[in-house]
Every structure is written in C-alpha cells, then in structure tokens.
C-alpha cells in the first residue's frame, strides 16, 4: 500500500510539473501559432486571387452530397468579384488540399495547393518553382553582393490553371497550353489536383444555379 502511494505520488508530481510547464509554453506560443496558420491561409488566398482586396468568412454549401467550403472575394468597394473554393482530394499518397480562385462564371483565376505530401521528385513537384537555381550559382551568388533577381513564386504546374474554364481542365501528357500538362511521372497527382479544381467549380456552378449559395 505504501509503495503504491509512493509511486503514485512520484508520477503525480512529475506529470503535474510537466502539465504546468506545458500550459506556460502554450500561453507563450498560442498567439504565434494562430498567426502563422492565418498567415499561410492569407498568403494562399492572395495567390489564388491576385487583385482582391479582402475576403469573406468561410462558408459551406452542399450539393449532390458533397460539401464545399468557400470564401467570397471582394474588391475595394466591397463588391463580390469572385469566390475561392477550398477542396480536398486523395492524391497518390496523401490528401491534396487546393484553394481555387474563380470568377462568378466559373473561370479559374489562380489556384494554390495548400497542403500535399506526394512523392518527392515526382508528385511533390506540383510545388516546384520554375526557377532552377543550381548549387554552383547559389554558391557564386554568396560571394557576389549583387541584388538577387525577383523570382516568381508560383509553381509552374499551378500557374497552368489560371484563365482556364472548367471544360479546359483536362490532363494531357504532351505539352499543350490549352489544357493541363501532367507532371512527368506523376499522372495520378496531376489528375488529382485537376480534380480538386474542377469538381468544386462544377458543384459551385450547380449550387449557384439552384440558388443554394
């Protein structure tokens, strides 16, 4: 009996101290964590709809048994100029979360893959930037104080979606500016991202026609 109490007390003390410590750290980091999450979302929102001045609250509609979350996009005079659809689709080995900015008629403004964990070197190339800075160049630029050139921060695969109508959103293997060119060796990921863009737009247009928004 005495040993059990002793053991229990020791565990209690250790767990208690750890708990108090955690709550203290939580108090310090709560705000920065929330800020970081918001910042990531805001960056995504801006990239998915360049030219917007503010965004509405997260709303959800449901059509054909599928729920789609979306934001309204406002210009400076608080007029709705488009929407941003948040949608998630299973890729090759992870869930791919995409934010799609569209005009009211369903035309894509820009997209942003918010989350993915596809195969590095193949599917993960959806996030690959067009610049292909080499190690040598990076090493040289360390020693030359010239200002670095401003580089595009939109991955080329995601840039393809801008200006496409839902009918154009078809994955093709050969390079074709009218459709979506697949990442080489990653057809499944390419198709999944395209689906994550196309499907919510179609659902959105349907819901809009039915007045469900």
């Amino acid at each position: 009996m005495k040993t059990i109490l002793h053991y229990g007390l020791v565990l209690l003390i250790i767990a208690g101290v750890a708990g108090v410590g955690l709550s203290l750290v939580d108090r310090i980091t709560k705000e920065p964590i929330k800020a970081a999450q918001n910042k990531r979302l805001e960056e995504g929102q801006k990239l998915a709809f360049p030219g917007a001045s503010s965004f509405g609250e997260l709303k959800t509609f449901e059509t054909e048994g599928k729920a789609v979350s979306y934001y309204e996009v406002f210009d400076e005079s608080q007029k709705v100029i488009g929407y941003e659809l948040l949608y998630q689709v299973g890729g090759y080995q992870s869930q791919i979360k995409v934010l799609t900015g569209i005009e009211p008629d369903g035309k894509v403004v820009a997209i942003r893959v918010l989350e993915q964990a596809e195969t590095p070197g193949l599917g993960a190339e959806v996030d690959a930037l067009p610049s292909n800075q080499s190690l040598l160049c990076a090493f040289v630029s360390l020693f030359s104080p010239e200002p670095e050139k401003e580089e595009s921060n939109i991955p080329w695969f995601q840039a393809q979606f801008s200006g496409k109508t839902p009918e154009d959103l078809v994955v093709v293997k050969a390079k074709d500016p009218k459709h979506i060119t697949a990442l080489s060796g990653a057809t499944i990921t390419s198709t999944a991202v395209t689906k994550a863009v196309k499907e919510p737009i179609e659902l959105f247009l349907k819901a809009k026609a039915e007045g469900k928004l």
């Binding site: 410590g21 750290v25 980091t29 705000e31 920065p32 964590i33």
Partner: peptide
C-alpha cells in the same frame, strides 16, 4: 512523461516561431 513534455514544448515553439 519527461520526453513527451520536452517534445511537445519543442513542437509548439517551432510551430509558433
């Protein structure tokens, strides 16, 4: 418990900062 405590602290600090 000690290890989990430390890991959680590191995790929160990294996520925050």
């Amino acid at each position: 418990i000690v290890i989990a405590f430390l890991v959680t602290v590191v995790d929160m600090l990294i996520a925050g900062f």
